[in-house]
């Protein structure tokens, strides 16, 4: 192979390689079709979590709700639910807050509910009135 041919081949390979890398990572990235829930975009993961929390109102089984959240692949599902709920509270996501708080309350119990969530409990427990001063 002459030097001319070899040089042309190398130049062509470099051109093609850079074009291929540009296309494969840019406009035409690999498209996944058998993805797990853990690969969902964060927006969809959060929507899925809210759906599961809302479903808890229909199917009040805490373990089943946690089982449904497990495929999201979070290291600590309970901590993830609490974090998301606190974020919704900070963002004033009015629709999602009571739904998520109800699930958090079911998971960790009313007594362990963080103070920031107490206000959003769907069922506030009645407190006995303060004793009257003598």
């Amino acid at each position: 192979m002459s030097r001319r041919t070899l040089g042309s081949l190398l130049v062509g390979i470099l051109l093609g390689l850079s074009t291929g890398v540009f296309l494969g990572w840019g406009p035409f990235p690999v498209e996944y079709k058998n993805s797990a829930l853990s690969a969902l975009a964060p927006h969809y993961q959060e929507e899925y979590t809210v759906m599961v929390a809302e479903g808890y109102r229909y199917d009040p089984e805490v373990n089943a709700a946690l089982e449904r959240l497990r495929p999201l692949g979070k290291e600590n599902t309970i901590a993830y639910v609490i974090d998301l709920t606190e974020r919704y509270i900070s963002q004033s996501n009015i629709r999602a807050i009571p739904i998520m708080v109800a699930l958090v309350e079911a998971i960790i119990g009313a007594d362990n509910l963080p103070p920031v969530m107490q206000l959003y409990r769907p069922t506030l427990t009645a407190t006995s009135p303060a004793p009257l001063a003598p």
Partner: peptide
């Protein structure tokens, strides 16, 4: 050379080191 390079580039970006799967939509789920 360009054809070989393009093929190698696509193999690398689609198979060996694809874009990290982060923003999957529900229709792409298994």
């Amino acid at each position: 050379g360009a054809a070989l390079g393009l093929a190698a580039g696509l193999v690398y970006t689609w198979e060996i080191d694809p874009v990290i799967e982060r923003n999957t939509a529900p229709w792409q789920l298994s």
